[in-house]
């Protein structure tokens, strides 16, 4: 484990705690895309199915269970506890294209035609675009609560930190996971506009507002 990977995973955990904190403190899911959360649940379930039969380490085991459970909990909070219709109105990104596109790409680029490998590839492609409904919603409203932006930033930082981790592992271990690296870079690029606004506004103590 190198420092980039640890920092990335901590950032990922932080993003989830920020989101749950925001929802429970404000008792509202305003500004949060249910569709993005639904996609993350699908990502975690399809990718971490192997938790039931592949042992890597206690760390990986615990993290996988946490990510599956917390994403389902967020879905539950958004659907059953604090659901409002005005949020649904703004959450209009057509995710069926993301799901279908990820499915096709997974079938083309999977390392091996086994169910778990195809699902793994699918989860990578889907994760790379899962934030799009959230960013689309942000675009439509033009502004966001500071906590929401911290959440998106921490989530983006997680994938950004995995890039130096892959460099490190390539040189230290000769390990190179083409699919993970490609989709990880795509995902980080999708965040780049957001990072820019976050850096220029939120980190300077201003509200997140799009020009």
């Amino acid at each position: 484990m190198n420092v980039f990977r640890i920092a990335g995973d901590i950032s990922h955990l932080a993003s989830i705690f920020i989101l749950i904190h925001q929802i429970t403190i404000t008792k509202s899911v305003q500004g949060i895309s249910f569709k993005t959360q639904l996609l993350y649940s699908i990502v975690f379930i399809t990718r971490y199915l192997d938790v039931t039969f592949r042992w890597v380490s206690l760390y990986i085991f615990a993290m996988k269970l946490f990510f599956i459970a917390s994403s389902l909990y967020i879905i539950f909070l958004m659907r059953n506890r604090f659901r409002t219709s005005e949020v649904t109105k703004l959450d209009t990104f057509p995710i069926v294209y993301l799901l279908a596109g990820s499915g096709v790409l997974a079938l083309i680029f999977t390392y091996d035609y086994s169910i778990t490998e195809v699902l793994w590839a699918f989860s990578l492609f889907l994760e790379s675009v899962a934030i799009l409904p959230q960013l689309f919603m942000l675009q439509r409203t033009g502004q966001a609560k500071t906590l929401t932006t911290h959440y998106i930033f921490a989530l983006g930082l997680y994938r950004a930190l995995y890039i130096p981790n892959w460099f490190y592992r390539y040189f230290a271990e000769g390990r190179f996971d083409t699919l993970a690296v490609f989709t990880g870079i795509v995902q980080t690029l999708i965040y780049s506009d957001f990072f820019w606004v976050y850096y220029n506004r939120v980190m300077k103590g201003l509200n997140f507002e799009l020009p």
Binding site: D9, V56, S57, F67, W120, F176, D177, L179, A180
Partner: peptide, 10 residues
């Protein structure tokens, strides 16, 4: 095979 990697990341 360079792509035959163990899935040991999150």
């Amino acid at each position: 095979d360079a792509n035959n990697v163990i899935h040991d990341e999150l």
